[in-house]
């Protein structure tokens, strides 16, 4: 059992949990993920790590209530327990494992959409602690769903953009990126993009045109998360990779996005039915 130390709602359907998980916090790195089960009947839910504190033995996750499983998790409060919290899984971000002097030479930009802001924060913070302050584009549909603004400002050069123009710049992250590079003289040679699949697809089509090497973090359907089930197959170039052991970060240019999006919808009818049931229960 894993104790929830803190819990806070970041917007109407996104919450942040700080969990006592010494076996994860002792070795986790930005880019890696955990698998969480709320209770003994719960499904195994993969979540990318948002923050960690080795001294306090805690790991922070940010969760959006998009399905029955995450709604169930959202009912847990500080002081209560999660049945399982296992990790770290997957590989750390290359930026946090490559020699730091190499990383320092790169002109890095992060692009975060929606919930993707949480795992991006983890990497930006790590770089900041290692003397590198990167540019960060954070996109949201509107101001009221923007998350982790203050936290991100403290560790990176933040550009906020909203689809409806209610805060920061107007338009999606792709528009913002294009403006920064083509109109505002920004130069980047490395981009890390995390967010909804459709956003990562279009952002990476742009960065390819702009000649910016781009890495994305994939979050496909998973069961065990340790390489055993193969549900998380992602086509990368000519190879089929398992996101859990070979990823979750891959070169954006090589991803077969249409296949990835199709595969992520594999259990849509079942998920919708479960969501209906969960909502009735609320």
């Amino acid at each position: 059992m894993f104790k929830i130390i803190e819990k806070e709602w970041l917007n109407a359907n996104t919450f942040r949990m700080v969990v006592d998980a010494p076996m994860v916090s002792r070795s986790c790195m930005p880019g890696q993920f955990v698998i969480v089960r709320t209770d003994e009947e719960g499904e195994r839910i993969p979540l990318t790590i948002c923050d960690y504190d080795r001294d306090a033995h805690t790991v922070t996750i940010v969760v959006q209530t998009i399905g029955a499983g995450t709604i169930e998790m959202s009912k847990k409060e500080a002081g209560e327990y999660l049945a399982d919290f296992v990790g770290p899984l997957g590989n750390p971000s290359d930026l946090c494992t490559d020699p730091i002097e190499e990383v320092r030479k790169k002109k890095i930009v992060f692009v975060a959409g929606g919930l993707g802001t949480a795992p991006v924060y983890c990497q930006v913070k790590w770089l900041h602690e290692h003397g590198i302050t990167a540019d960060v584009i954070v996109g949201a549909r509107s101001k009221d769903i923007l998350i982790l603004e203050d936290e991100m400002k403290a560790v990176g050069n933040l550009y906020i953009t909203t689809d409806d123009g209610s805060y920061g710049r107007t338009g999606n992250v792709t528009v913002c990126m294009e403006d920064l590079v083509t109109k505002e003289g920004k130069e980047y040679d490395h981009c890390v993009c995390i967010g909804p699949m459709i956003m990562m697809k279009f952002l990476s089509l742009l960065t390819k045109k702009l000649n910016i090497h781009t890495v994305v973090s994939m979050n496909p359907i998973m069961v065990d998360g340790t390489g055993m089930c193969g549900a998380c197959r992602v086509k990368v170039g000519n190879d089929t990779k398992f996101a859990c052991v070979h990823g979750p970060e891959f070169d954006a240019e090589k991803i077969d996005w249409d296949e990835a999006m199709r595969r992520s919808a594999m259990y849509k009818p079942e998920e919708a039915a479960a969501l209906e049931k969960a909502k009735e229960g609320v």
Binding site: R26, D84, F85, V86, G87, P88, T226
Partner: peptide, 10 residues
């Protein structure tokens, strides 16, 4: 001890 991945957690 469940939920421990040797090679990752430790």
């Amino acid at each position: 001890e469940t939920d421990v991945i040797v090679g990752k957690s430790i």
